[in-house]
Design a protein around this nucleic acid. Structure first.
Lengths: 259, 259
DNA sequence: TGAGATTTCCTATATTGTGGGAATATGGAG
DNA sequence: CTCCATATTCCCACAATATAGGAAATCTCA
């Protein structure tokens, strides 16, 4: 099928994961043939993979309709991941930042070409926890790119840069320049590049290797985050990010001395 | 290796899922050899599966220590699963039940031989969201067994019934009798069977096929949930469960008329 | 610096996943 | 109620893919 630059020797597993990934864009339930269509796999293969995922609890099949939905293992391990990262401990910090800045606060992590919001300041399902945002058109994404480990900082690997508004950066060269600017400034700005009338400022949460683990954003309107106050917002966000750096690095990692 | 009663034709996928499952019992990070040991797979195989999971974002590998942790796709799809089930809409109902009863409220779903708490009334990581509890020693579990679909109600399939306290039901026959009692009464009781001094009452959240989708529990001390007030607690829990039944059945499922 | 453990890569083998196709079940329309 | 279209599930021969052994590279700790 694809020539697929991946040198991995695990077709079945990657296909199974792409079955799970269908639920990112699809509705809450998908039929076996939906899965086959979306993954471009044969009906038999999609069906067999789905059954394997059901047997391990990552999918669930409705007894009546035979449609699939994400299963209990997914929720369980998702929560576990949340706790194992220590994210349940950062809520107070984020709340404080939100109050100090009167802005909405998001904490995100990179997942391939997307930023996934781990803790969303909004309960709005359209911009809340679990949401995927593109890297090129968000402040979170620019931060995740600017401090990415070598090899994952390739703008070309993002594919076509889809415009969200007329301000969205769509030229890879422009994006590289923007990323360079972000790295120098220490924060990223998204001024209506993903949606109109929204201005977001993001900073990295770094580990000791100076690589980004999470991105932290404060989001509001241009009337609140004015040009002259950007420095002030950056300072507050940076302070919160530093607090998170302390909270989010596990004891095990912390014992590793750097110099 | 195992004779493995599963008639499925997907070894690689199931093995990959068992790699993910390692993180349920293990620490927040596991090394490649940890994974090989726990899954009883050869080093090469465990390593290759782990890499495939990393490439799809379900695992993450620390650049420094080369250890693995659960990845962003896990958190993302976990949250997605949460929302797609409509669970973000039930918080008010659960809060109301908690206030009315002055008890802790848990909502759980079955995952194989365990109950997974989807919304835990406690922020305590030891008894909060994402926790796995055994089916035989919890009120949640008894409910999930009592209304299980045919074929999944087999007590024998649970394996050995491990005692948690001296009150834990360990004889399969006793458990079957208890399940029968639960079904008749409409609620399950756990009186110190999983931990001392804790009494829990659980009721099912049923779909129209009279099969259990979720289990809802109120948990407190025997001084609060006294013998004489059990009926009162059951009534309140049952009322809340009915409200959840309305909330949690998707519109798609709802349009299916039953009689 | 050296011993031991761990991560990672490579390759031959056959076990395992693959997809065509047929049988069965489901739901909608007339 | 019956028929038709669509979707789900099962079966089987083929060969592509995952497997495990071993060796090299890297890291850890003394």
């Amino acid at each position: 099928m694809e020539k697929s630059g991946s040198p991995s020797g695990t077709q079945a597993v990657q296909r199974a994961m792409s079955v799970l990934a269908c639920f990112r864009d699809g509705g809450p339930t998908l039929s076996a043939s939906d899965l086959a269509r979306r993954t471009r796999l044969s009906t038999s293969t999609a069906h067999r993979l789905a059954r394997a995922l059901v047997s391990t609890g990552f999918l669930e099949q409705d007894a009546r309709t035979a449609r699939y939905r994400l299963g209990p293992s997914m929720t369980e391990l998702g929560q576990l991941s949340f706790h194992q990262r220590g994210l349940h401990r950062v809520a107070p910090e984020l709340g404080q930042l939100a109050r100090a800045t009167s802005a909405t606060v998001d904490l995100a992590i990179r997942n391939g070409p997307h930023a996934v919001i781990l803790i969303g300041g909004s309960v709005d399902p359209e911009s809340g926890t679990g949401l995927r945002r593109p890297l090129h058109s968000t402040a979170l994404g620019k931060v995740l790119l600017a401090w990415a480990p070598p090899g994952e900082d390739d703008v070309a690997a993002l594919g076509p840069l889809r415009p969200q508004t007329e301000r969205t950066i769509v030229d890879p060269e422009d994006l590289r320049a923007e990323i360079e600017r972000v790295r120098k400034a220490g924060y990223a700005l998204n001024d209506g590049e993903s949606s109109h009338g929204v201005r977001t400022l993001a900073v990295p949460v770094l580990d000791r290797a100076e690589q980004v683990r999470y991105a932290l954003a404060v989001r509001s309107t241009p009337e609140v985050i004015t040009d002259t106050r950007i420095g002030w917002f950056a300072m507050h966000a940076r302070a919160c990010a530093r607090a998170l750096e302390v909270l989010l690095l596990s004891p095990e990692e912390r014992r590793i001395t750097d110099f």
